[in-house]
């Protein structure tokens, strides 16, 4: 049994050092701390995480990043898959509260309806971190921080690239848009950001916009009809890679060459999407990085240590052209 002093020093070191360095050393440290930690048995930091589901390759990469980063940081991760249902997620969070985990993190399925369960977590003095998607609660003290991508920015970057690419175009440029799930934050925000950016050039016009539910089958079925209804489509803007990949099949079946006859812009940069970009079938991808695991684990440590953290943290991400995709592909994790 260590004295409290050593334990505290240890904990301070533990907060400062990066996750990867501690991968092995932490377990021993945690075990020896069992006495004064309380509540968690093994002494490790226990993180309860409730994931939306596994609706796309992006989400899977997100899940893997969180699992790997938690393992690397030596946390005990209680992972729950909500399968796209808010009630499952609320149940999972209540379970986490009952199990007295140290920190709760979750990606909200929808934006509203979280006040009650977040209040329960707050009353139990368990800090909550939102990842990837936000909630619309008026009381911002219900959660510590929101780490995730800026969807408006992703749409804006896509639009700005298109404006730059088509600045020499004299005639109208016809754009079709494949929206994400109707009403979801990424669909709303990416649409908004893209529309704002292309307003800079009056030649750029969105002639058709329809939801493909973020799935390949949806993107394909919608694109098939777009191609038949609109003889001249110059640009496709898809709110995620998967819909773009589905649309590729429809474009090929229509006898057009994706990436040449129709310029394709997508968001996310998952492996299959990056491959399509490197193969010249896509033209531009704005990254929406799912690899927020390490950043999240950092925040968990800081929150647990009682440090103050900003209420909004953006994930680190960039954009890719075809050449950049070719260069980046071999080292991509997802």
């Amino acid at each position: 049994m260590h004295t409290t002093g050593t334990a505290m020093t240890r904990r301070r070191i533990f907060a400062v050092l990066s996750a990867s360095l501690l991968a092995t050393g932490l377990a021993a440290c945690g075990n020896s701390d069992t006495g004064d930690k309380g509540g968690t048995g093994s002494g490790k930091i226990v993180l309860g995480f409730s994931q939306v589901g596994a609706e796309s390759g992006w989400r899977t990469a997100n899940t893997n990043s969180i699992k790997e980063a938690a393992a690397a940081a030596g946390f005990e991760l209680k992972f729950d898959d909500a399968q796209q249902k808010q009630e499952n997620q609320i149940k999972a969070i209540r379970n986490f509260i009952q199990q007295k985990v140290d920190v709760i993190a979750f990606s909200p399925v929808v934006e509203s309806g979280w006040d009650t369960v977040l209040k329960e977590a707050k009353d139990a003095k368990i800090p909550v971190i939102l990842t990837d998607r936000s909630v619309d609660s008026a009381d911002k003290t219900l959660y510590k921080t929101f780490i995730g991508s800026d969807f408006v920015k992703e749409g804006k970057l896509s639009g700005e690239w298109l404006v730059e690419k088509t600045k020499s175009a004299t005639g109208p440029v016809n754009i079709v848009e494949l929206q994400g799930t109707t009403g979801s934050a990424p669909a709303n925000d990416r649409k908004k950001g893209f529309a704002a950016a292309i307003a800079a050039n009056p030649n750029l016009k969105v002639i058709a916009s329809q939801t493909g539910d973020f799935t390949r089958a949806g993107g394909k079925a919608v694109m098939e009809q777009f191609l038949k209804a609109n003889p001249k489509i110059d640009v496709l803007f898809a709110h995620n890679d998967d819909m773009g990949l589905g649309a590729l099949e429809a474009i090929t079946a229509a006898g057009k060459v994706p990436g040449k006859d129709i310029t394709i812009i997508t968001i996310d940069a998952v492996k299959d999407g990056m491959q399509a970009l490197a193969d010249g079938k896509f033209n531009f991808i704005a990254e929406c990085s799912p690899l927020l695991g390490p950043q999240l684990m950092d925040l968990v440590k800081k929150v647990k240590a009682g440090e103050t953290i900003p209420t909004r943290i953006e994930t680190q991400e960039g954009t890719f052209t075809q050449e950049q995709a070719k260069a980046a592909l071999p080292t991509r994790k997802y």
Binding site: A54, E55, Q83, R216, A217, G246, E249
Partner: peptide
């Protein structure tokens, strides 16, 4: 048919 349509299986969406 649903999976062959897009040459991929998505447990959640099919």
């Amino acid at each position: 048919m649903l999976t062959a349509d897009v040459s991929s299986a998505n447990g959640n969406a099919v």
